[in-house]
Write a protein that binds this DNA or RNA. Structure first.
Lengths: 198, 198
DNA sequence: GCGATTGTGGACCACTGAGTCCACTCTGAG
DNA sequence: CTCAGAGTGGACTCAGTGGTCCACAATCGC
């Protein structure tokens, strides 16, 4: 089932299924997205889905992994050159812009977490990994800020990164509910001020 | 359908249904909680459910309203006597304790928001009202802190309250995913420091 | 007491859900 | 060319879904 011994063609089909499933789940939620919907949207059949995944749970795990990987890639790129507080503000602005580009639909990983964390151990593990990887990226940037004395030194990078992550997730939730990015901006401003050296 | 022209008995039954539905939805999610589950758990029948609510959507709206009301009552009580930053820290500790008491299951309103915001206008409206009421309570406390110069004055109470709310929601999400209240504590510490006068 | 209203039980329906199964096609290594 | 295995199509099962309906029980105002 893992995409190891798959043909080029097979991998392509598998990717298409996960990709479409991710979009549908993001739009409507994991619980109410049916396999039939995914199949219709991809133009594939049941047998293919069960060929590549272990049922709906397997597919949703793959969706979690995909969204986590996407966020990881995006923020690795956005955070790579963050060395100053001003850079960090740039990251925040880019993050807000990204959220707006997605119609303030919320955090793809956060939504899955709210819905699937605690449902099964497999989900839990995949979600934890996703958030941990994201937090590590943030912690890396914070550590660089600490080196140049732009970030406070009385907290570990991990702690500061966790605080930023919570602000981001909460901001995205409120932004989604209110259909306004203001909350998100407020939250990120708070987080950055919290990271800054006093 | 609204609980106006209901008998004592009828109101009791209606309350029991909403109450149980809220618990099930909190535990498993709104999408995957079936009406039959609710009926079995309450020992009622289909006709009763459709007598008191307009289908599943009506029931879920009532669930949102109930959870919002509960949070409102709880935090009205917790915030009533908050006049100093130290009081606010007490509120934060009580909030963390409450989350732990509920097994770090996340925010009852936040989960509903992640799952239902954007699904229908009815949900959206009910959720917005819920968060707005909650934020107002926080804003009230912040305003009192501002009067005694314990909170910064360069932000409106509403803005500061929104920031606290995002930290709380984000913290609860991460706490649920990681099954640890540490993130929540970090987030609330950040939020309170953000509110504090410098 | 009595009749209208409210509350209740549960059978029933059409439909959709996840998951199974088998026959078929494609493809690539030998 | 061939044939094993990967990839595909789609019919099928059957448990559950939201929702409808109607007969019956409890209750309240008069």
């Amino acid at each position: 089932m893992p995409p190891g011994q798959l043909t080029e063609r097979g991998r392509h089909t598998r990717d298409r299924i996960v990709d479409t499933a991710a979009a549908l789940v993001f739009a409507h939620g994991a619980g109410v997205t049916s396999l039939d919907e995914v199949l219709e949207a991809t133009g594939t059949s049941k047998s293919q889905l069960y060929h590549y995944f272990e049922g709906k749970e397997g597919l949703l795990q793959a969706v979690i992994a995909l969204q986590a990987a996407r966020l990881h890639d995006l923020h690795r790129r956005l955070l790579r050159d963050v060395h100053t507080l001003s850079d960090l503000r740039g990251w925040a602005a880019a993050t807000v812009a990204e959220a707006e580009r997605h119609g303030l639909g919320g955090c793809p990983l956060g939504m899955l977490a709210f819905e699937l964390a605690g449902v099964s151990a497999g989900y839990q593990q995949e979600l934890e990994r996703g958030f941990a990887g994201w937090q590590d990226l943030l912690a890396g940037a914070v550590a660089r800020l600490q080196e140049s004395d732009e970030a406070r030194a009385d907290r570990t990078p991990a702690e500061l990164a966790a605080a930023v992550l919570t602000a981001l997730e909460g901001g995205l939730l409120l932004a989604r509910t209110r259909r306004s990015a203001d909350c998100l901006r407020l939250a990120l401003d708070m987080a950055i001020a919290h990271v800054a050296a006093r």
